[in-house]
Every structure is written in structure tokens, then in C-alpha cells.
């Protein structure tokens, strides 16, 4: 699904990511954590080619992203779902339009678009708000619409950047549960968050960014003391937090 081989990223001489190597499995749910400015968003941007790596190779869904020409980037992004902290919904469009906007341009017939949108919105329990505008929804609902938009193409990979960052604790829990349900269905889910409570509560594999390097570990739910450390696939081992 996602494979990083010795990936580094520099901004104007400042190295944000150093020698990052990791691999994910199909249907895996994993976290990407680290303090603000650790490079979480940069790593995610590398995955959906919003940034190019300075060094190293990135393979996403079988496609080599590192040297990918601009013309192939839309196809890469359509092969995955992306969820943002600020939802990035089209403000003047209804929930239905937001979820089906790209499908419309890909020539998916209206009836089929509506069917897919209804099914996906049902999954996030917003199938009764098809005609609502984003401003009429709560933050949690908006994030669920964004999640539905990311899922409507049935992606094999879902990348979420601080998906609960703007939500209260209860709504954050709801969104996390949804994301875990999605991974159970076979979608690989990578969630970037700085919320350690959320990570501990989920008890899943966790990639922690520390001064640009990935520190890998497994966090067990309810048993944080048993958090194990192990070597990443590349053999690069550092202690988990």
C-alpha cells in the first residue's frame, strides 16, 4: 500500500524528514504521530504527491510517486481517499455534490453517483442530510461528509491529516471508530494526529516522527505499558515513545 525507502525532504536547506523508511500492509490501520512541526503533514503530502521527496523512493498503491509526472497525479489521488483537519468541503455545494463532485466530472451517471453517495453517507450516518450545505452542519458532521467523500471511490488507501483536530472528544471518538471500521473492510488507513490519548485508546501500530526520523512502535489499547518497540522493515530501530 505505502512504501517509503530512505525518504528525505528538505525545505530551503532545512531537513524536515530524514531517511524515512516504512511499509504498510493491506487493511492495516496505523497512526502517524509527533509534535507539531515534526513533519507529519509533509509525510502525508509526499504520499499524495503534494510535495516531492528530496531523496528516496515512495511507492503508493503500486505506483512510484517519487518521479511521477504531473499528468498522473490526479489518478494517484483518486486511488486513495484523503481527509483533512479543516474538512476542505466546497462551501457552496450540498453534501451530495461534495461527495460526488469528482465522480460527476469522471462521467459517472447521476443515478449511480446518487446511489454511491447514499450508501457512503449511510456509512457515516449522514444519508438524511443530502441536500444540506456544509455551513448547516456541525464540525463532526462536516468531517463525516469529508470522510464520505474520501470513501465514495472505495479507495484501497485512506490518508487522514488530523481528522479529529477540530472536534470535541466525543465526536473525535466517533470519527476514529468510523476510520477503524473502514480498515476492517480492507482499506489501509493512515491517520496523522498529535493526540496521544487517541493513539493510546486505539491501540494500533504507530509511526512516530521525531526530529524528522520515524520511530516505530505498537501501542496496545488499555495496556499502554506494554507498548512494544520493534524494528521497522528496513531494520532501522529506535525506541517507541
Amino acid at each position: 500500500m505505502i512504501e517509503f525507502y530512505r525518504v528525505s525532504k528538505e525545505y530551503q536547506g532545512r531537513r524536515v524528514l530524514r531517511d524515512v523508511t516504512f511499509k504498510t500492509k493491506k487493511g492495516e490501520f496505523l497512526f502517524l504521530t509527533g509534535p507539531s512541526g515534526a513533519g507529519k503533514s509533509t509525510l502525508l503530502k509526499l504520499i499524495f504527491h503534494a510535495e516531492k521527496p528530496t531523496e528516496g523512493q515512495i511507492i503508493v498503491n503500486g505506483m512510484n510517486v517519487s518521479g511521477m509526472p504531473a499528468s498522473r497525479v490526479p489518478a494517484l489521488r483518486r486511488s486513495m481517499g484523503i481527509v483533512f483537519q479543516d474538512y476542505k468541503l466546497l462551501p457552496a455545494r450540498t453534501v451530495l455534490d461534495n461527495v460526488t463532485y469528482v465522480q460527476k466530472f469522471l462521467g459517472v451517471p447521476a443515478a449511480e453517483r446518487r446511489r454511491r453517495a447514499y450508501q457512503t453517507l449511510r456509512l457515516v450516518e449522514l444519508h438524511h442530510r443530502l441536500a444540506a450545505l456544509p455551513e448547516e452542519l456541525s464540525g463532526g458532521e462536516q468531517q463525516r461528509v469529508a470522510l464520505a467523500r474520501a470513501l465514495v471511490n472505495e479507495p484501497v488507501l485512506l490518508v487522514a491529516d488530523e481528522p479529529t483536530g477540530n472536534l470535541d472528544h466525543r465526536l473525535a471518538g466517533e470519527v476514529m471508530k468510523l476510520l477503524q471500521d473502514i480498515s476492517v473492510r480492507g482499506t489501509t488507513v493512515l491517520v496523522a494526529t498529535h493526540d496521544q490519548e487517541l493513539v493510546k485508546a486505539a491501540g494500533r501500530r504507530c509511526l512516530t516522527l521525531d526530529r524528522g526520523r520515524v520511530v516505530e512502535g505498537l501501542v496496545e489499547a488499555a495496556l499502554p505499558s506494554q507498548a512494544a518497540t520493534k524494528r521497522a522493515d528496513s531494520g532501522r530501530v529506535e525506541r517507541a515513545p
Partner: peptide, 16 residues
């Protein structure tokens, strides 16, 4: 501008 950015992020083809 925001709409265009979102469309790019969700994989809308450039010509569209």
C-alpha cells in the same frame, strides 16, 4: 481558489 485546491486534492483531472 479554494474550490480549485480541493478539486486538485481529491484527484479531479486537470483539464476538468
Amino acid at each position: 481558489r479554494d474550490e480549485i485546491e480541493i478539486l486538485r486534492l481529491v484527484g479531479a483531472p486537470e483539464f476538468l
